[in-house]
């Protein structure tokens, strides 16, 4: 597939926002491909010891794919929302393909000494998180979207607020409760299983 030009992608985005569902169907593979490439490059870079920025990933994708001068901020917000969702798919798939087993509390690894303290992480199990997010969405869709945008999309509080059309304060409240809720959900779902 030849790479679509920024004008084409921009037009698709605008068309979609104006109600053309086909435009979204064509838009998604383009964003998906770009994101997947970037995400994998990022992960490989990490492997090789290059340090890259994660936070800018969606912004970069946006800048690369779209003709910014023609996109209103509202459309940009929708682009971000779609992109964060795709990012979630990519990363959860990635986690699944690593036959990443569920462990108690998602404690992925520990280290045993002072020397390794920076390496201690409470890595959440992305697959379990994905399930928990579904459950959360059934309860309160907005909260699950806040998590999707912030955690998978890497959006700031502000950007999240903008995308969802709520205040930053509300984003923070949602974020805070959603995190606790999800953590408990994941821990319990692991605990439930033999």
């Amino acid at each position: 597939m030849p790479e679509p030009s920024a004008q084409e992608v921009t037009k698709l985005l605008i068309d979609w926002r104006q109600g053309n569902q086909d435009a979204l169907d064509r838009l998604i593979p383009i964003i998906y491909e770009e994101l997947r490439r970037r995400a994998h490059r990022y992960m490989q870079g990490q492997q090789k010891g290059h340090s890259l920025q994660t936070t800018g990933l969606i912004n970069e994708t946006y800048l690369r794919l779209l003709d910014c001068s023609k996109v209103s901020w509202k459309n940009r917000a929708h682009f971000f929302a779609v992109t964060a969702r795709l990012m979630r798919c990519i990363l959860v798939d990635h986690a699944r393909s690593h036959s990443y087993k569920k462990r108690g509390g998602g404690l992925e690894k520990f280290s045993l000494d002072l020397n390794q303290i920076p390496a201690i992480r409470h890595d959440p199990d992305l697959v379990a998180l994905d399930d928990a997010l579904e459950a959360l969405a059934a309860e309160d869709d907005r909260k699950s979207r806040v998590v999707e945008l912030r955690f998978f999309g890497g959006l700031s509080v502000e950007e999240t607020a903008e995308v969802l059309g709520i205040s930053g304060q509300t984003v923070m409240r949602d974020w805070r409760l959603a995190k606790v809720w999800l953590m408990r959900e994941i821990n319990e779902s692991v605990g439930d299983r033999p």
Binding site: H94, P124, V147, L182
Partner: peptide, 23 residues
């Protein structure tokens, strides 16, 4: 939920990509 509040502070505070790359 309140009982989990403290534990959840650092939860998800890192970008998912970082976590995925550690897999």
């Amino acid at each position: 939920l309140l009982n989990n509040e403290e534990k959840a502070k650092s939860f998800l505070e890192e970008h998912a990509l970082e976590i995925a790359s550690r897999l």
